[in-house]
Design a protein around this nucleic acid. Structure first.
Lengths: 219, 219
DNA sequence: TATAAAATTTAGGTTTGTCTAAAAATTAAT
DNA sequence: ATTAATTTTTAGACAAACCTAAATTTTATA
């Protein structure tokens, strides 16, 4: 039996390992979980005991195959619930994280596969993040950060790196929701801000920060 | 802040009070919660401290107005999720209790009202139990136990008193799902078993126990 | 390479929710 | 109205998950 708290730690470790490629440090986990390093050490011992992580004192941790499977299943649940909340209940993409965080812990035999069927087997969640299938396989997509585009290139918004409500709401305001098209007109060398044009002819200036947090697919 | 465990106790007390009309006893709560009397006493102190119940040592408990509101909201959530699981995800009525038991604890501003809207504001759950509205008002229905029918009377199934999967599955097998019509042909005095006819002409003999656990509306 | 700084772990505590066994109060029965 | 049976509460423990403060280990720096 894996507790909710344990599940959350596994997910946090998975998330860190995704970005960093090396063993996840106690401090990084504490930051991700918004708790103290001491609490993390406590939990790491328990997770190691259950063979969900490989843990060596002072050396950070890595998920075992089993731990990785648990984390992947959780992410699948989280993202499917997000699709449900947005597509079926009409929530906006900046409102669903906390709800999905709770829903992902609901345990039940067929629940998630039935939900998946009900939603039409979506491959990406409302933020453009891939949803692993029942066997833990991920969908990939040719996407790059907006900041890497060259002037003249056209692209469509496919996802975000920063998932904060503030960023998502700002994108809503700009009309840069998933699928929105755009063309990079120029990059100002002074601060790396970007001038882009939308299909309806509007021109926007986006900060470097926006460019580094928005994924697009070049068309 | 009310914990999941506290919520479950409030719901249990509500359920007992519904049937018994008098103060709920420690033992009755322990039975309903499948735990020990000592654990119940512990919890009752906490609930009383939070003004969710009126508690006097050795005298049983009653919900306060606030406690009753919490319990009602929980029941609303539980039953709406059951409708979702049956109507949208295709679960059968004997499979949804445990899932709804978890889903009812998910906290979120508009979640339940949005779910309610999505489901079309159902008034009854898949077992025929009423779903209180957002203000805590209950729907009532003219229903009686099948065992109270007189020979010759026709009725339709509206709900169950026994919610066990075994009973629900048996009813499925008999074709006595919600809305099913029937006519009482005779009651055998020997064991109070009932001979009934269904609209498609089938005749069934139902035990006294079935008659005392099936609600019907006389037509 | 010592020493300072940073990261990590240990030690010792707290809260929530549970338990068993024993004590106390209430209710039933002779 | 005592005694017996039942119900309820208290006492004392335990596990999970967290905390702060202190000790230890690792890493960075002079």
């Amino acid at each position: 039996m894996i507790s909710h708290a344990e599940e959350n730690y596994l997910k946090a470790i998975f998330k860190i390992s995704e970005k960093e490629a090396k063993a996840a440090s106690t401090n990084a986990i504490a930051a991700e979980m918004q708790t103290t390093a001491a609490s993390v050490t406590d939990m790491l011992k328990r997770l190691a005991e259950k063979n969900l992580i490989d843990y060596e004192k002072y050396r950070g941790v890595q998920l075992t195959t089993e731990g990785s499977q648990v984390a992947t299943a959780l992410i699948r649940k989280h993202r499917l619930w997000e699709v449900f909340l947005v597509d079926k209940l009409g929530f906006s993409w900046d409102e669903v994280h906390d709800l999905a965080e709770q829903l992902e812990h609901v345990q039940g035999n067929n629940l998630i596969d039935r939900l998946d069927t009900f939603l039409g087997h979506p491959k990406f969640d409302p933020h453009g993040d891939p949803i692993p299938d029942a066997e833990g396989r991920w969908s990939f997509r040719q996407q790059v950060l907006l900041s890497t585009l060259k002037p003249g290139e056209r692209a469509a918004v496919t996802g975000v790196d920063d998932h904060s409500p503030a960023f998502l709401q700002y994108l809503d305001q700009l009309g840069l929701t998933l699928g929105a098209g755009l063309e990079l007109l120029e990059r100002f060398p002074y601060d790396q801000s970007l001038r882009v044009r939308t299909p309806d002819g509007r021109e926007l200036v986006l900060s470097e920060k926006v460019g580094q947090n928005l994924f697009v697919k070049i068309s």
